[in-house]
């Protein structure tokens, strides 16, 4: 199991489009992916879960990945956040 804290850097926060990108990326991997914010832990493969986290600008989330391809999955997710979901 690997986990990492990431901060949301795009102004709009996680709305529908970034959420779709995250889910798309998460579904490429077999590992279980979870996002956690204020004791709220949700499945990274569900779009509604990610949107309902209510992660706005500068919020910090904890990503936890568990499974066979965990390293690669974490890397890919972190990459998405660092690219600001190709916004701005």
């Amino acid at each position: 199991m690997v986990s990492k804290e990431i901060t949301i850097r795009n102004r709009a926060g996680i709305h529908a489009r970034p959420a779709a990108l995250i889910v798309q990326k998460a579904n490429e991997f077999d590992s279980q992916i979870y996002f956690e914010k204020d004791h709220n832990k949700i499945n990274g493969k569900s779009i509604m879960g990610i949107i309902t986290l209510g992660a706005g600008y500068n919020t910090t989330l904890t990503v936890t990945v568990e499974g066979a391809d965990e390293e690669a999955a974490l890397q890919a997710i972190v990459q998405l956040f660092e690219n600001r979901f190709e916004e701005e």
């Binding site: 529908a16 709220n40 949700i42 569900s46 779009i47 509604m48 949107i51 309902t52 209510g54």
Partner: peptide
Amino acid sequence: GTNMVAGHHMEIRGLGI
């Protein structure tokens, strides 16, 4: 539901939200 804002929405693959 966890969040009132997103209450009673569903995601169906192929249709969206």
